[in-house]
Nucleic acid binder design. Structure first.
Lengths: 347, 347
DNA sequence: GTGAAAGCGCTAACAC
DNA sequence: GTGTTAGCGCTTTCAC
């Protein structure tokens, strides 16, 4: 394991000269530069990022904390982030909260301890404390998917959830459906709430009365999609419906199973529009009509925003040194457009 | 942002005392300990891992480098690793090589620069150079999935790929199939080669002649599964087969599509056994019989092995200080048992 | 039981 | 164009 000091001694130059070469700084004689380059090659020198980080008060590392990396939605976003940040030589520290607010809290602290330069967070918590560490210490946080209920300006890159529902419901209405049920997420989370609001809005715009008995709340997992659909089906005589809009991938699968078990045909008896359904196999039959999010774009946009925020912070530090007033930073709420993928389950 | 020094000044004790409290060392007066604890709380002190890492020459960080985190196989392994290493307060630096040897090389260097304590690698490369950095500097590397062709003792946690094939083929034979085709991966990679060898072995044990025209090589992606199956089908008159064994999830999907397009029924005309097929939806019909790997266990075992290797290294360092001979470390090759999940595509 | 101080590997300000 | 050195925040040895 070689260090600057060792190489300096070996080549009979100072550490600062080598540092200059390594970091491509000017003011190094071409001859010296060449000699140093060869030395670095020879001794297989790789700079120690830990030492650099300590000195520069920046780690070239960002944290990503999501509820479940095995969900396609999140893994695609991570790939989108990695694509761009990898180019900038940033590393990603990944943490999986496993849908647990407690674990989220734990990882928030661990990531802070690692002094990440920025955090990307898909939160599952409803109360917040560890996140304050980031705000207090001016570490950029970008929220994705779900945004927290805190009175504070935040950066986020999210879907226009309300519009997603409007598109889904209008599609169903255009195909002749008038009685449309919904299974959405917890309305305490922004995703669940906004998707419900879009549903109501679309119905109202089409002068279709809202039937409270056609609205069910699940927790994004398959079993609640199944049980909510069961409930709807058990009341189908009193509260009939010909279409069902489901607010997550797993709940969609659960709902489809419930409908099939109930002996109804999709889409002949019930049309379905799902959310975030990724059929990697392309073999699910009938193909599921679904709202999709542009995950790769989300990731890319998040990464660009991170780069921007970190750059601003650097500028700010320089300014502070010259004791100029701190520029106030405008947080951004970036809202992306949903995509409707029409397949066989809607007519 | 508070540091030991600042808190020390504030509480009128020395930095070493605070360090002792933070790290739960002995020899601190209970009264002092209490005072310091309160100060830490009050100032929201969180130790700086970067400084710690520099001092301790260990970062409490491990690298995971895989070809594609959006593949269920890898994301489940990562979760399995995280489950255990999170408990040990290790953080995971994740990198996605996107199936590119060049990117793998780049990330190998970036991870080394971060001075990770250990590396988990699912390699896609056939030539190696950056990995030597790890061996030369005695950084534990655990290989998963695919193992490299290097003459060196390595740690790895892999599937018994040959046995997986034997199980798959025996299952097909037991169901009356005698003419069995295979689409496997690149035989230059251990996974592709071993799966092929198991196939041949099972046929020989059952006294079924090997027909070279029933053996095709893909690259794990869907389109090669499709095209290999097409080739097999175009020769089905001269080289008939009633069953097909496919060596990856995506190739399985491709092959099924080719067979369906050809107008043949699964399993009536052709039985299928796939590999690593994860049907999260549970809606693929007919359900695909497949070989599965115990991903969570792989992750857990990898994590345990990492903890062990890092511990040994620490011991070794202590020993070296007392100038005792370095104990040679035995590398481990841990081979796990495949699982056969029987569904509808095989009979 | 507590404090002072060296030093981990690097960058950057300053001196020459 | 190059070298010297302070110091980033921490742990740990040694002295008291």
């Amino acid at each position: 394991m070689s260090t600057l000091k060792e190489i300096a001694k070996e080549l009979d130059v100072s550490v600062s000269t080598i540092s200059r070469v390594v970091n491509n700084r000017e003011y190094v004689h071409p001859k010296t530069r060449k000699k140093v380059r060869e030395g670095i090659e020879k001794f297989n020198y790789v700079p120690n990022q830990v030492a650099r980080s300590l000195k520069k008060m920046a780690t070239k590392t960002i944290g990503i904390l999501v509820p479940d990396i095995s969900e396609n939605f999140f893994s695609q976003i991570i790939k989108g982030i990695d694509d761009i940040l990898g180019e900038h030589k940033y590393s990603i520290i990944l943490a999986d909260s496993n849908e647990s607010a407690k674990k989220e809290e734990k990882y928030l602290k661990l990531l802070y301890q690692n002094r990440i330069d920025a955090l990307v967070l898909a939160t599952v918590a409803s109360e917040y404390s560890a996140i304050d560490l980031y705000f207090e210490n001016n570490i950029p946080v970008i929220f994705i998917d779900n945004i927290p209920h805190i009175e504070r300006d935040i950066d986020c890159v999210i879907l226009n959830n309300s519009k997603a529902s409007v598109i889904a419901i209008n599609h169903l209405i255009a195909n002749g459906n008038k009685r449309i049920a919904i299974i959405t997420g917890n309305p305490k989370e922004t995703t669940g709430l906004e998707r419900l609001e879009g549903y109501k809005k679309a119905l109202q715009q089409n002068r279709i009365p809202i039937d409270r008995d056609l609205i069910k709340f699940g927790n994004y997992k398959e079993n609640t999609g199944y049980s909510c659909a069961k409930e709807l089906l058990s009341n189908i005589d009193k509260h009939p419906f010909t279409a069902l809009y489901v607010g997550s991938e797993k709940m969609t699968y659960g709902a489809i199973k419930a409908i099939q078990e109930h002996g109804l045909k999709i889409p002949e008896d019930i049309s379905i529009v799902g959310f975030d359904v990724h059929d990697k196999s392309g073999l699910i039959n009938p193909g599921i009509t679904t709202i999709r999010q542009p995950e790769k774009s989300i990731g890319n946009i998040v990464a660009d925003l991170i780069v921007k925020r970190i750059y601003e912070k650097k500028q700010q530090r320089k300014q502070n040194k010259k004791s100029v007033l701190k520029a106030s930073v405008l947080r951004q709420r970036i809202v992306l457009e949903p995509i409707l993928e029409i397949r066989d389950t809607s007519k």
